[in-house]
């Protein structure tokens, strides 16, 4: 009884949550200025990451990063810590990850980054990353 009643409800709720998330994610990502975010990328990320599809540097390509599964690029040698994280790089997850030292966010990661404490710059950066599709 409970099962028959709750499944359509749950399915609807999940669908609504997904739609809400889908609607909000770009809104969150777009809270910043993508053009300014491009500059933040150049000063904070570009030495280790390329935005070109398939081009890995010391870090993996960030083409299509927003919405991607962690550790998903086949020809990049991720750390075991990130392989086992099983994250989806949503805008929220990226915000959380990049706002603190990488080794704190994902102990054992290869990534050496102290984090971006300026919330405006972080919003701008996430807006820019969301355009990389």
């Amino acid at each position: 009884m409970i099962k028959s009643c709750s499944w359509p409800f749950l399915r609807g709720a999940l669908g609504a949550a997904f739609m809400l998330g889908w609607a909000l994610a770009p809104a969150l990502a777009c809270a910043g200025d993508a053009s300014a975010g491009s500059d933040v990328f150049k000063s904070e990320c570009a030495e280790c990451h390329s935005v070109k599809e398939g081009r890995n540097k010391k870090g993996p390509s960030l083409f299509g990063i927003v919405g991607r599964q962690s550790g998903a690029i086949a020809d990049y040698a991720y750390s075991d810590a990130l392989k086992q994280a099983h994250w989806t790089w949503s805008a929220d997850k990226l915000h959380e990850y990049l706002s603190q030292p990488a080794r704190q966010a994902n102990p054992g990661t290869k990534m050496k980054y102290d984090g971006l404490s300026d919330s405006k710059q972080l919003d701008d950066l996430l807006s820019y990353l969301s355009t990389l599709h």
Binding site: A46, C48, K57
Partner: peptide, 8 residues
């Protein structure tokens, strides 16, 4: 070796 550009 690094995949980095000269400019980096």
């Amino acid at each position: 070796q690094t995949g980095a550009a000269c400019a980096d």
